[in-house]
Design a protein around this nucleic acid. Structure first.
Lengths: 217, 217
DNA sequence: ACTGTATTAGGTGGAATTACCTATTGTGAA
DNA sequence: TTCACAATAGGTAATTCCACCTAATACAGT
């Protein structure tokens, strides 16, 4: 069966990485890099023009981030498969990426062979989920949770309240007083939040809340 | 005149970038990649073993950052030229990089040709300072003025470094390891930061850093 | 009725933070 | 040279964080 070349577009703000990947892909049979960009808005334009089969998207990009690019592409008459590369792992970002049709969500320190594999899988519409984190994601995703805010994070109402208070700079005790619950309960909520966000500490909660406009810097 | 090959070592935590650069350098006459690593301490060991002429160093690396690597190499019987690549521009880091003998300090979104040029310059002991940032560097270096954030906040060099690490989600202990200082010293700096920023806790430091583009959410 | 989960709360214990100290070294300014 | 301050590091003690654990109540959906 004849297999045409897979047309690949690389969107990443780091030019060095783009150029490096292009060099690596030249020796990769069946994969043709048809364009690259370090800018989100430019990516949207170029993808319409070049019509790649696959877009390699970094989550972080100037002017429009990877998720923003994915959102726009969805409403356009192009339908490339999406493979995300992320600098910093973020549970909610990953969740949204897959909600937008991502086929892979790779860490930047993954191996090139792994990236190629992910691209080949994506080219036939299949997922490539590395590590155990991938499986968890699918499990969680096929059981969608209600609530609009919750849908991205999986947080409950009270957890969201607490997250906001913590992000606003209140300590666990202060937040507990504010919510009229004991510190112990607040800690249970906090633990749940951290698990759901894969947060290492309050810093990650703060950043999540800022990203989601739950609080402001 | 016979010009031997320039032996290059690549130290960057992002494996994809390393692999990409290696692929690019294979077509670059006169430059031979003799090793690579994604870990600071490993880099120190491998540089002693491989004896490269030039070490390409990312400022940010696990276990020991680029500046830490440079510090250690200075006290060892090897004397490679140093070319830094930075993810996030940091005035004090750049300053220290040059103080440690760096020949170039490039942004990660520079062009590959630019990187090659910087390496060729470094291989003959010359500096390569790209763009307007280079000029600013020289100007500022000969008559040092505190940078913008520092001038408004009153933070010192080390305090800024720590603030950034804390905002990036590192604990005091991790940040201390990163900066090659004791936890106690890191705590002194943190206390100074909080006083100067009127910060109540780390949350406020995170927000300050986000507002000032020292880190991203 | 049973199951699942959200919300509440407590216990224990180790790790970390934070607030107070003191103290040495080096550097740059008056 | 003296003075101020940055950077380093340690001590002590209170507090908080965080990861484990159990457990009651309530309210949803099957």
């Amino acid at each position: 069966m004849y297999q045409s070349e897979t047309r690949l577009f690389i969107a990443d703000e780091r030019k060095l990485l783009r150029q490096g990947l292009i060099a690596l892909f030249t020796t990769e049979l069946g994969i043709l890099v048809v364009g690259d960009s370090g800018d989100g808005l430019e990516t949207v334009d170029l993808v319409q023009e070049k019509k790649p089969d696959i877009v390699l998207l970094n989550t972080r990009m100037p002017r429009l981030d990877g998720l923003g690019v994915a959102r726009r592409l969805r409403n356009l008459p192009v339908n490339p498969e999406l493979v995300f590369i992320t600098t910093i792992h973020s549970e909610p970002q990953m969740r949204e990426a897959f909600a937008l049709g991502a086929k892979s969500y790779l860490q930047q320190d993954c191996d090139f062979r792994e990236l190629v594999f992910a691209i080949r899988k994506a080219s036939v519409g299949e997922y490539y989920l590395s590590g155990p984190a991938g499986r968890n994601l699918v499990d969680e995703y096929i059981n969608p949770t209600p609530n609009e805010e919750m849908s991205v994070s999986g947080m409950t109402k009270r957890e969201m309240e607490l997250a906001r208070l913590l992000a606003d700079g209140y300590s666990s005790k202060e937040a507990a007083d504010f919510m009229n619950i004991s510190v112990k309960t607040a800690e249970v909520h906090r633990a749940a939040i951290m698990k759901k966000l894969h947060a290492k500490n309050v810093t990650d909660i703060v950043k999540f809340c800022i990203r989601n406009n739950i609080t402001t810097p």
